[in-house]
Amino acid sequence: MDPIEREIRYESDRDPTFADEIRAMPGCELMDRCIQCATCSGICPMSDAMELTPRRIIELTRNGFKNDVLRANTIWLCTSCYQCQVECPKKIGITDIMYALKSKAIESGAYGKKFTIPILAREFYAMVKANGRVSESRLVQRLFMKTQPTRFLGMGRLGMKLMKTGRFSNKVERMRNPEGLRRALEALPTDGRKRS
């Protein structure tokens, strides 16, 4: 017979420093006001695909249940449409909290190695930092190589067709002075966080 799994949370499962770190980030102070009304989940276009709805994320975050929050796919499915933040009756910066959580998740590496969205975020940023611009086709290539390399190779035919119709180019787009941008980005404060 399969063992019956029990789930109960003890106070030792909470990480209050995690909660306070999120609170300290700009826009996130107000999450203590949340009355769990579920407007955010109701209006969020992606909430039915999320493992934990935005409302649950807020409740788990402010109680310090770090693992639940950072392992859920919620923060990566957030499209930053800002509907939740606009409609929230307590004017809580829910999208800001999602961003703060994304940042924390990247810091602690709390997602699968081949999870698409953070990899996309990393590659995007790296390309912008190097060139000041994103070269779409090259970005998509790098994304596929890092997440689903075999599938990528299987898309060779599609690639040829796109090249013929001019939809696909390996040209590197670059801004005039990428060095200046890089210096500006380097000058940003890190607050002790790992710089990607």
Binding site: Q36, G42, R56
Partner: peptide
């Protein structure tokens, strides 16, 4: 009406 039934736990 689209709503999250917060007690049941789904949209």
């Amino acid at each position: 009406i689209r709503v999250e039934d917060s007690l049941a736990g789904f949209v």
